[in-house]
């Protein structure tokens, strides 16, 4: 076995071009540490993203790094995982990428329990395109496309993901990289679709007081409860006066890959005695 990897070893040759003070720096550092903690091997790790400031992340980390299409990171990551199940697949994107243009994909990756980790760096704004409203922009906030104040109710992503039956749902804050690291480690280890909502302020288009405002509302959860209690999880998500950080919901159930492997691939392999005969196999599987 080669020498243990250190967090710094996972850094790529690209220097982040995020604005000074951007919340995404805290996440990047936590990610590097989580990779060290798990000793993820770059050649066995796929980092996928959509498009946005947050989606730049894969460029900064040594792994198989993909920068895909705005909003399509989940189908992309699903393709990677299905074709190479042994790979650790982590998908990253912003709130615009994931909750707006890409929102239609979330439910399907979640309900199929595709064994990937999906991280949304939520800054409540479109950062890369310079400050338009996103689904998590608070009501009434003035942005470049909500000149008269944001009019739509703010999306609660944690509640959405619980409703979609994501098998692991957590929230964390890039202002607390240790906590981010802990959530990442648990999420990556979770067998199935794991989701982390990371509060990660955009200092340029939402203001540098975001860190302070979030800190004032933060409450930490312990795991001292039945994590698979959906009602309790909804209660936590529904309490919007607080920003509860931690694992909010967790359920162990077979992943999509497990089901295919167990229900078909392994049975077929056993039945075919090493030399697959399609007609004989089809007979075996006829209802």
């Amino acid at each position: 076995m080669s020498e243990a990897m250190k967090a710094a070893d996972y850094k790529s040759e690209l220097k982040p071009i995020w604005c000074p003070g951007c919340g995404d720096f805290g996440f990047l550092n936590a990610m590097l540490k989580a990779m060290e903690e798990l000793q993820l091997q770059p050649e066995n790790t796929a980092l996928c993203s959509g498009i946005g400031c947050s989606s730049r992340l894969p460029g900064y980390i040594k792994a198989y790094s993909f920068n895909g299409i705005h909003g399509r990171v989940l189908p992309f990551a699903t393709g990677v995982k299905m074709s190479r199940p042994e790979t650790t697949v982590i998908a990253v994107g912003g709130d615009g990428d994931g909750y707006s243009i890409g929102a239609g994909h979330i439910g399907h990756a979640a309900r199929k329990n595709i064994d990937i980790t999906y991280v949304v760096l939520d800054n409540n704004i479109y950062g890369l395109t310079k400050g338009q409203a996103s689904p998590t922009t608070p009501l009434g906030v003035k942005t470049k496309t909500t000149y008269y104040g944001n009019m739509g109710t703010t999306l609660n992503p944690v509640r959405m993901l619980i409703a979609y039956k994501a098998s692991f749902v957590a929230r964390t804050f890039s202002g607390d990289p240790k906590h981010v690291q802990k959530m990442l480690v648990e999420a990556i280890q979770h067998p199935g679709f794991s989701f982390i909502e990371v509060l990660s302020p955009c200092v340029t288009f939402r203001g540098s007081d975001q860190f302070k405002l979030i800190r004032e509302k933060v409450v930490y959860l312990d795991d001292d409860r039945d994590l698979s209690d959906e009602v309790k999880a909804f209660d936590i998500a529904n309490d919007e006066d607080k920003l509860t950080l931690g694992v909010i919901y967790k359920q162990i159930r077979p992943t999509y890959g497990d089901v295919i492997r167990h229900n078909v691939i392994e049975r077929a392999r056993a039945a075919s005695n090493g030399t697959p005969d399609i007609d004989a196999l089809l007979k075996q599987f006829q209802p």
Binding site: T129, Q132, T145
Partner: peptide, 15 residues
């Protein structure tokens, strides 16, 4: 929907 270099059209429309 925002996208560079067309976003100012949507932004002007919002106004």
């Amino acid at each position: 929907y925002p996208i560079t270099p067309a976003s100012e059209i949507a932004e002007a429309a919002a106004y």
